[in-house]
Design a protein around this nucleic acid. Structure first.
Lengths: 223, 223
DNA sequence: GGAGGGTATCAACACCCTGTCGAGCGATTC
DNA sequence: GAATCGCTCGACAGGGTGTTGATACCCTCC
């Protein structure tokens, strides 16, 4: 949860007190965000200039810089929103796998699938921007870290209670599985040419996760 | 194998006939390629201008364009080389898993680990450039397609001969595993903050692959 | 009810990077 | 010795980024 927080520069108070709308406000930010998400549906980040964002929000380029430090900040805000949604939905789930462990894991994976597929534009831009942008990379690293930690913790408890046979180092396995999610969902959302079928992606991820988390107990693995 | 081929524009004959070296030739190309790989060790692709590449190779920017169509072409050439190395080393392996299937898969995965870790600069740039560059994306898609096809074919034969229990759709599982490789190796090679330990990455990948390819026969999976 | 201060806006600028055009230069060929 | 071809670069046009300085707006406080 948490994250480095917002990314906005200016703006103190929303000003508008009554119900009569003013032509400006902090919905400029919203306008920029919406423009960004809309344009990202159409073309990759690299093909979107700050001028496009500004014009889309009805302002000039320098004014854009009043609200955001650059494309970077816009993306960070978009990412934070998506991450928050994942966090909320995960928090609403039972905290541990019960009798039906496969169903529980499936629910968890469903959250990722739902949210990422529900914000295709943001998901798609992630891989592209993370490569270039240190702040975004750090933010994503934090999120991943959190998910990996939770995954590893649950797996260790599953092993301790005898529900899962020991195997790979729990943390490394958890990391690999989360990276798998990231890459597979990116492929789906970007419409890559070898990509899993969208309607089957939850089955696919669940299949891999369960095979790794609850392996055949006699599998030979050297440390 | 194959791929879309080279990416070079000009150059007909190397000209240099005897043993006396001329100041120019087609080793200009090599100089550019070497400069690219060297600079990519230090900083991301976005921070390398064509002028950097040209100067590094001792030529001017317009001259660079005589040899390559842009950064894109340089990257494509670098990628083709790496892919060729993977192809050769895979071809030198036994074509099917024998009695010791885990060892065979481990050898296959070792090729990817070795080659990707041996060309860190190229591996690192892949994720970054694939997002922006259609040609590179297509080329990588082809390569992935090939590996996924081979993986799926072997898995199906393993299932037919009874060595592997049926489970996930073979092709989708193969795709997921190859995407896993890509993402995990990228994390290692880029020194990301949650990244698997480099010395253990082969064990990790092998563990996941084997768990997925040879699952416990009673695992419950709905279609 | 006019002075003052934060809020918000943009034209214009300096800079960097890309890709292209056209002129030039050295060697080879006839 | 002139036509040709491979190779090279200075200089340009175009587009992107980020900043600066002038300005207009609104609120508030005296």
């Amino acid at each position: 949860m948490s994250g480095t927080g917002g990314a906005v520069r200016g703006r103190r108070a929303p000003v508008g007190r009554g119900d009569e709308r003013r032509p400006s406000g902090d919905d400029r930010q919203r306008a920029i965000l919406e423009t960004a998400e809309r344009l990202l549906e159409e073309r990759p980040l690299a093909a979107i200039s700050i001028d496009d964002l500004a014009r889309g929000a009805g302002i000039s380029r320098p004014t854009f810089y009043f609200y955001f430090g650059g494309k970077e900040d816009v993306l960070l805000t978009l990412l934070d929103r998506m991450a928050a949604e994942v966090g909320e939905r995960l928090a609403a789930l039972p905290p541990e796998p019960g009798d039906d462990a496969p169903a529980w894991w499936r629910q968890v994976l469903g959250v990722f699938v739902d949210v990422f597929l529900g914000h295709r534009a943001v998901s798609r831009v992630l891989a592209e921007a993370r490569a270039t942008n240190p702040r975004l990379r750090a933010e994503w690293a934090d999120l991943l870290e959190g998910w990996v930690g939770s995954t590893a913790a649950v797996l260790e408890r599953e092993r301790r209670r005898g529900a899962a046979a020991p195997g790979l180092d729990a943390r490394e396995a958890a990391l690999a599985l989360n990276l798998l999610n990231e890459r597979v969902l990116a492929a789906v959302v970007s419409g890559e040419s070898p990509a899993p079928a969208e309607h089957g992606v939850l089955d696919l991820l669940a299949g891999v996760w369960l095979a790794v988390l609850y392996p055949a107990p006699d599998r030979t693995l050297r440390a």
